[in-house]
Nucleic acid binder design. Structure first.
Lengths: 154, 154
DNA sequence: CTCGGTGCAAAGCTTTTGCATCCGC
DNA sequence: GCGGATGCAAAAGCTTTGCACCGAG
């Protein structure tokens, strides 16, 4: 909910540089969307972002939301995930620690974890296949051992 | 293209057990779809599988293809991937070595690689978060170092 | 004979596209 | 003022659903 102003200032700066570098226009919509994203916690999909914006009475269209998200993903301020469903999930990524995701097979909740060893795997594959790894997605699908898993219900 | 009969026999057996265990009917469509999948190489999406079946003059519907794929994924004979797009990709998984995927950011080609260290990461996370990892998805997005990458075109 | 499974087509959802309008540069 | 970007709505693409019929058990 709350926007970290100091962080937003930095992020806004990065976005501005990116837009200038690509000779794209600095429209108010683009900044409104960026600000909204950085005031959200956790993962979100396009529709919920759109609704959030509408609720604040901003006049934006889905098309612009999609377009802007693409830009933000490209300049690394937002990351995009496909958690097995057909709905793309996004999350702000500036200043966040590199992390991967675990999805609970009982309740679909998404947890985060860090493991530096993923880097070693990337390095090996880079050498072996002669590629430069740009980014990765590691998702573990796992069931909760605890009986009290929120939604042990399926 | 060619179906490995010995493998198919084993796979058919597994599917049959699964259907019996779940008290589901052994319909001809289900076996036709299984057979077609195991005669395909590499990844495929629902539409191409459907077209393959239609070309062989089988009377199947997309609904049945989707339904059967769900069953096959559940009994581990087929694995499902979301390679960043909204089209689910599938591949036969029985008898194949555990592997992960690298997607070329230049030409979208999908390569496979194996790295046992992913297992270590899973073990650590299992302990740390108290989950049982059922399966995982690791995708590396990487650009080809070689100038002669098939489609260095974007 | 029952009722789960199927085919077909329509509906549902997410995402993309076309076009007139708007506004950053 | 030009041309990129937007809003809106329609269209597209993948997947699910409703319904009448079929066929496995």
């Amino acid at each position: 909910m709350a926007l970290n102003l100091k962080q937003y200032e930095a992020v806004r700066q990065i976005f501005t540089s990116y837009l200038e570098q690509k000779a794209l226009r600095k429209t108010s919509e683009r900044y409104i969307i960026l600000e909204e994203i950085y005031s959200l916690q956790g993962h979100f999909d396009v529709e919920s972002l759109y609704v959030h914006l509408k609720n604040k009475n901003y006049r934006v269209s889905r098309a612009t939301v999609y377009n802007t998200l693409d830009l933000l993903v490209e300049c690394d301020l937002v990351s995009k995930h496909q958690f097995g469903k057909n709905i793309a999930q996004y999350e702000k990524s500036h200043g966040s620690k590199q992390h991967d995701h675990l999805i609970c097979t009982d309740c679909s909740k998404v947890l985060e974890f860090c493991d530096p060893r993923i880097q070693n795997i990337q390095n090996t594959v880079e050498e072996l296949l002669h590629f430069n790894v740009v980014h990765h997605s590691l998702i573990l699908y796992a069931s909760c051992k605890k009986e009290n898993c929120e939604n042990k219900r399926v």
